[in-house]
Simulated assay, not measured.
Amino acid sequence: MPPSRPDVTILPWQGKTPRIHDSAFIAPGCRIVGDVEIGPDASLWYNCVIRGDVNRVVIGARSNIQDGSVIHCDSATPGAPQGYATIIGEDVLVGHMALLHGCTLHDRAFVGLGTIVMNGCVIESDSMLAAGAMLTPGKRVLSGQLWGGRPAAFMRDLPRAPGIAGAEAYVELARGHLAELAAAGSGHGPAQG
């Protein structure tokens, strides 16, 4: 188990401990529990909750989960014997206060501020779910599409992919926050200590 920090909770659950890459940035106030894997240069921003207690959660390299977001998964049911893990690919942007539950976000997906993505949903590469949208169970956003609304529906094709630039910017921003926290004497090293 990673060394504890007074401002971050990292807890095992039933023998499974979060696995956090040394280069990931975990901001103060985050809570990470159970079967969670966080990849290289990923960032979890202030006050996020990532809970892998009834299934697993994976966050890929350079993906960012912005402030106040909640990520959970779902256990097996008769209709879904494997349950619903939450799998987030590489270079994914997840806006502030998003709620992701038992869904899959492919590489370079973009999920806007305050969105809800429910069990069995898939957001393919280079697609976007607009701010405030709610993607209801089992929906699939195809590559290059923009969906929005509550419930979310197809709006239009994107003229270009949302781009990797946002993910790259967040990697640099995380490094800056880490340096500022260290300079302030808060004892923040890499994600794990």
Rank of each mutant, 00 (worst) to 15 (best):
M1L: 10
M1N: 08
P2Y: 07
P3Q: 10
P3E: 14
D7K: 00
D7G: 06
V8F: 12
I10Q: 03
Q14H: 13
K16Q: 15
P18N: 06
P18T: 07
P18M: 11
D22L: 04
S23H: 02
S23P: 10
S23E: 00
F25Q: 04
F25Y: 15
I26W: 10
A27D: 14
P28W: 03
G29Q: 10
C30S: 07
C30N: 11
C30I: 09
R31A: 12
R31P: 01
I32G: 12
V33K: 05
G34H: 06
G34Q: 10
V36N: 03
I38G: 12
G39Q: 03
P40L: 09
P40Q: 15
S43R: 03
L44T: 07
W45C: 05
W45A: 08
W45E: 00
Y46S: 04
Y46M: 06
N47D: 10
G52Q: 10
D53Q: 11
V57N: 01
V57W: 06
V58G: 00
G60A: 05
S63V: 05
S63T: 13
N64Q: 01
I65H: 02
Q66M: 14
D67E: 10
G68D: 09
S69R: 05
I71H: 00
H72W: 07
C73N: 14
C73K: 06
S75A: 13
S75M: 11
S75G: 14
T77L: 02
T77N: 01
G79E: 11
A80F: 09
G83K: 00
Y84T: 02
A85I: 07
A85H: 06
G89A: 07
E90A: 14
L93V: 12
L93T: 14
V94D: 01
A98L: 07
L100N: 00
L100E: 00
H101E: 07
C103A: 13
L105D: 09
L105C: 01
H106I: 02
R108D: 00
R108M: 06
A109I: 04
F110L: 12
V111T: 10
V111G: 03
V111H: 01
T115P: 04
T115M: 06
V117W: 08
M118Y: 02
C121V: 09
C121L: 03
V122F: 03
E124P: 06
D126V: 02
S127H: 04
M128G: 02
A131C: 12
A133T: 06
M134D: 02
M134I: 13
P137I: 08
K139H: 05
K139L: 12
K139V: 01
R140I: 15
R140K: 13
S143D: 05
S143G: 05
S143W: 04
G144R: 00
G144D: 01
G144H: 01
L146I: 11
G148F: 08
G148H: 09
A152W: 00
A153R: 14
F154P: 05
R156A: 12
R156Y: 04
D157A: 11
L158G: 02
R160I: 12
R160N: 13
A161E: 10
P162R: 01
G163A: 05
I164G: 04
I164V: 13
E172W: 05
L173S: 13
A174N: 08
H177F: 15
L178A: 15
A179W: 02
E180M: 08
L181A: 01
L181S: 00
L181F: 15
A182W: 07
A183T: 04
A184N: 08
G185S: 10
G187W: 01
P190W: 05
A191H: 08
Q192N: 12
G193A: 15
G193C: 08
